[in-house]
Design a protein around this nucleic acid. Sequence first.
DNA 1: TGATTTGCCTAAAGGGTTTAGGCAACTGCA
DNA 2: TGCAGTTGCCTAAACCCTTTAGGCAAATCA
Lengths: 190, 190
Amino acid sequence: MARAGLSTERLTRAGAELADEVGFDQVTVSALARRFDVKVASLYSHVKSSQDLKTRIALLALEELADRAADAMAGRAGKDALAAFANVLRDYAREHPGRYTAARLRLDPETAAASAGVRHARMMRAILRGYDLEEPDQTHAVRLLGSVFHGYVELEASGGFSHSAPDSQESWSRILDSLDALLRNWPAAS
Amino acid sequence: MARAGLSTERLTRAGAELADEVGFDQVTVSALARRFDVKVASLYSHVKSSQDLKTRIALLALEELADRAADAMAGRAGKDALAAFANVLRDYAREHPGRYTAARLRLDPETAAASAGVRHARMMRAILRGYDLEEPDQTHAVRLLGSVFHGYVELEASGGFSHSAPDSQESWSRILDSLDALLRNWPAAS
DNA sequence: TGATTTGCCTAAAGGGTTTAGGCAACTGCA
DNA sequence: TGCAGTTGCCTAAACCCTTTAGGCAAATCA
C-alpha cells in the first residue's frame, strides 16, 4: 500500500489551510485524515492529539504573523510603524481567518514563552519607542494597543461592522489616527 | 418514574452556570443531562440542538449584561458613564467567564437584532452623547470603544496581563482615563 | 538481500449529537 | 373520581470525533 507521505509539518500546514477554509474549530484530526485520504489513526504517529495539532497551527500562525509584521515595520517609526503593524494584523486576519483564530489560542506558559508571541510583544514596544512614554505608561499603552487591535479585528471578523455605514476601512483609519494622537498626548496619571 | 421538571428556561440557566464552572465550550447537552440526572435524549424536547442551547445561553448573558449596564449608567454622564459601562463589562466577565464567552457568540442577524445586543449599542451611543462627536466620528468612536472593551476583557481573561507589573487594574484605569481624554479631544480627519 | 525501522492500517472503546418510537405520569374534563 | 389526551422522560440506534493497541508492509540501510 502506497504511503501518503505524512509528517508533522505537512499536517500542520494542511491543518492551517483547513482552518482558513472551514474555521479553526472545525479543524479535526478526522477532517485532516480525510483530506490526506488516510485513516484517522495514522495521524497519531505525527501528532500527539487534537490539541497538539491545534497548538502547532497556532504556533505556525504566530510565526507567519511575526514575520510579516517584522517585514512591514522595517525602516518605519512613529505612526508609520503603528499603522504598518496594525495593518498586518488586520490583513492577516482577513486573508487567513482560521489561522488568525488559531493565533489567539490560549497557550500554556512555556509554549507561549517559546512562541513567536514574544516577537510580537517586542515589536509593540518598538512602536512605542517612537512616542514619549515612560514606564508604567508604556505598558498601559501596550495593553491598550493589543486590546484595540485584537478587539477590532475580532469584531470585524464576526461581522459586527459589515453592512453599516461608515465602512470598516474608514473607521479603522480614523482609529489609527486617534491612537496616534493619543500616544502623542498621553494624559498624565490623575 | 418521577419527572425531573425540565424546561427550556431551567436548561438555559443551568447551562449558563455550567459555562461559568467549566467553560462555555464545555457546555454540552450530555453534560447538562448528567447535571439533571436525566438521559440525554430527554433534553431534546426542550432544546432543538446543542447550537440552540448555546444560543439561548448567549441571549441570557446579553440580557443580564444589558440590565447591569443600564443600572450602572443610570444618572451618569461623560466619563462616569463611560467607566460605569466599561466596568460592568469587565466585572461581568470576571464573575461569569462562561456567560461572557457566550455573550460573544456569533448570532445570526435576526437573532442578533432581537437580542439585548441592540440595547448595548444604544447605551454606547448614550455614552458618547456626553462628548462632542458628530457622525461619522461617533460611529468610529463606538467601534473603538467596543474594540477596546472586548479586546481588553478577552486578553485579561486569557491571562495575558496576569503575573506582570503593573497590575491589570491599574492599566484598566489608565486606559479609561486615556479613552476619556481621547473622546474629549477627538482628532479631526486628516 | 536480509534485518530493522517506519508508516499506515484494522480493531475497538469511549463520548457527544440527534432522531424515532414507547410507556408512564400528569392534566383537564365529565 | 375516573378516564382520555397530552406531555415528559426513556430505550434504542445511527453517526461522528478521539485515542490507544497491535499488525503488516514498505522503505532504509548494512
